[in-house]
Amino acid sequence: MAEPAAARVLLIDDEPPIRRLLRTALAAHGYTLIESSTGEDGLQQAATRLPDLVIVDLGLPDLDGVQVIRRLREWSTTPIIVLSARGQERDKVEALEAGADDYVSKPFGVGELVARMRVAWRHAARGLRDDEPVFVVGALKVDQSHRRVFVGEREVHLTPIEYRLLTTLVRHAGKVLTHDQLLKDVWGPPYVGQSHYARVYMAQLRRKLEQDPARPRYLLTEPGVGYRLVDE
């Protein structure tokens, strides 16, 4: 499915300027925009029009954006992207853990939004097939069938945890993962909340894989939210 042709995108946002902007911008990419200005109406539209992707603004007048996501996720697996204000990291984390796929912070660039939409579609499609064994981005190559990792020509040796961490990120390449999601996946549910584990091991990974750990190319930090492995 990667990206459905003439994809229909539902936008739930109460601010007319945002709707106006995306109407124009997304149409330029060939998407049809279905607009809704309240949470309740948006949920109805999602149920009746069955869009291919939903963009939800967290600051809705009637329902909490996170609630919209939760109710949507009760019956739908459609990709959800969240629009949030800068500085509301806790809300973003909550939204992601309620089931949103990714987020953009206002003010955002349309290109960024579209890129995330595409990543979300890619992952939705991949979920129906087996993962590809080899993941490549830039100079980074992860061969999951042989459990080997290369940066350019150089092979890098990772500890089991580091490897698990990397493969989790690979599995969600391009998407943001919260600390808790990583912890649950790599260490297990008892470790949820102890985010310094994730940070320490990410730091180790960065040192092993990045040329300049302070300016990473692949393993991006989303401050206050989590991490993202670049996929192109």
Partner: peptide, 15 residues
């Protein structure tokens, strides 16, 4: 406050 390696905020700022 939480425990962070310094390169994360520095890297995020530069990004």
């Amino acid at each position: 406050k939480e425990w962070h390696p310094l390169e994360e905020p520095i890297g995020a700022a530069l990004a």
